[in-house]
Every structure is written in structure tokens, then in C-alpha cells.
Amino acid sequence: MRDRPVPVDFRLNGILDGDRLAGRDLAALAAASVAGGVTLLQYRDKQAGTRAMVARARAIRAAAGDAVPLLVNDRVDVALAAGAAGVHLGREDMAPADARRLLGPRAIIGVTIKDESDLAALDPALVDYGCIGGVFVTGSKDNPDPPLGLAGLARLRQAASASGLPVGAIAGIDLETAAPCIAAGADGVALIAALYLAPDVAAEARAFRARIDAALAARGART
């Protein structure tokens, strides 16, 4: 049995997307969102070269400090080079078993859950959380699949409960829909535009944390 890290706190996952947030200082955005209460950071970039990604990941990690883990989307090599806490993997990315072997037992590995086939492949011995999506329509990522909606989120969350892992929600979530996602069973939400395109990122993060923590308390979940 591997030596697990501290359980992942997925309440507020801030995704720093190099494409969606082009032209903005990702490290400064990371620092502002940490000040506002994000519990997990993820760096995603589909266009940048490897060296640029490593440099940006290092800058984000330095700005965030040690309080909040930084994950790299897709790229195990970038996570290793930048000293990130782990990776988030989609179904077309490196297999979790291979990522675990490369990153070691204490790295954080998260996976995307789009449907029941992803749940069937979910191995709690290899991964630390799942993220269900897309829940709503989003402009942050091309998604050929129709949105799951709250009913689909609730269905997949219930099916994932046997894993014992925290499970978040992603895609098109804003302040008005964050609490309904928690009520549907999510342990937290992942945000790009709703957080990082806000005029005051720290204040927006605080607003989301208040909504999320209140919704978790109403559901009887520990925060």
C-alpha cells in the first residue's frame, strides 16, 4: 500500500489556463486566488512549448507557496521538472499507473470523469481525486459531449462514492451554480473564467469559498 499524501482538499480548484488567460500574469493570479482561499491549483496549457510550461509552472509554484498544492494538467514531464505536487490526467493522457510509477507514491494524481467508463477505470489505489465534467456549457474548452447537468453530476457522483475519493465538478460553474453542484454531491468545484477573469480575483475566491463551505455544511459534509 502506498504512503498517501494528506487527502486532497478539492473545495476550490483554481485552473490557470495559459490559453484562456493569455496575456495575464499567471503567477500573480495564482497568488491572488491563494489569498482568497483556493485549496488546489492546476496549470493547464495546450499551446505552450515544454520549456515555457516548466518556467510558468515554477513561477506559479513560487507565487503560491507551500500552502496550496500545484498540479499540472496532462504533462507528467512538466510536473516533474517544475517540482509540482502532481498531475491531473484526462482519458487520452498518460495512464495513472504509469504516472504513479514516475511521480512516486506521495504525488497527487487526479483524473477526469466524463461517464461510467471513466468510473470503471477509477483505481483508488492509484489516484487521489476525480473531477466530473463538463457539468454545464463552457467556453474554456472544446467538449464534444453534451453537458451532464446537475442530474448527471449527481448520478456519477453517487456511482463514484464507492471509491472513497473526493470528487469535484467542472465546466461552466459560477457563483450561482456552485452551491447546487455541492448539493448534487460534488466535494468542490474547478474554475477558470469565473475566478480568473474577475476584476478582483482574491475577492471572487473568497465569495466562492463562502458559497462552497456553506453548501458543504448544509449537506453535512466536513469543511
Rank of each mutant, 00 (worst) to 15 (best):
R101F: 08
R101V: 12
L102A: 13
L102R: 07
L103S: 00
P105K: 00
P105R: 00
P105N: 00
R106K: 11
R106E: 14
R106T: 12
R106C: 07
R106Y: 03
A107L: 07
A107T: 01
I109N: 05
I109C: 07
I109Q: 05
G110S: 02
V111K: 01
V111G: 01
V111F: 14
T112E: 10
T112R: 00
I113V: 13
I113D: 04
K114G: 11
E116R: 09
E116T: 08
S117K: 14
L119I: 12
A121Y: 14
A121W: 09
A121M: 11
A121K: 10
L122K: 11
L122M: 15
L122I: 12
L122W: 13
D123I: 09
D123N: 13
P124C: 14
P124S: 12
P124E: 14
P124H: 10
A125I: 07
A125F: 07
A125C: 08
A125S: 14
L126T: 05
L126R: 05
V127Q: 11
V127R: 03
D128C: 12
D128A: 11
D128R: 03
Y129C: 11
Y129N: 05
G130I: 09
I132H: 04
G133H: 12
G134I: 01
V135H: 04
V135D: 04
V137L: 13
V137Y: 14
V137K: 11
V137I: 14
T138Y: 04
G139S: 13
G139P: 10
S140F: 03
S140V: 07
S140D: 14
P144K: 07
D145S: 15
D145E: 15
D145V: 15
D145G: 15
D145N: 15
P146W: 13
P147K: 05
P147I: 13
L148A: 14
L150I: 01
G152V: 04
L153E: 10
A154Q: 07
R155I: 02
R155W: 06
L156W: 02
L156C: 03
R157E: 00
R157W: 02
R157C: 00
Q158F: 06
Q158C: 10
A160S: 08
A160V: 05
S161D: 08
A162K: 10
A162N: 04
A162I: 11
S163H: 03
G164F: 09
G164H: 05
G168L: 02
G168R: 06
G168A: 10
A169K: 03
A169Q: 12
A169D: 11
I170L: 06
I170M: 03
A171K: 01
G172A: 07
G172W: 02
D174Q: 03
E176T: 13
E176I: 08
T177H: 05
T177P: 00
T177E: 03
A178N: 13
A179F: 09
A179N: 04
A179Q: 02
P180R: 05
C181T: 10
I182K: 05
I182G: 02
I182D: 03
G185E: 13
G185N: 05
G185V: 06
G185Y: 07
A186H: 02
D187W: 09
D187M: 12
G188H: 09
G188I: 05
G188R: 06
V189C: 06
V189H: 08
L191M: 04
I192V: 15
A193L: 09
A193C: 09
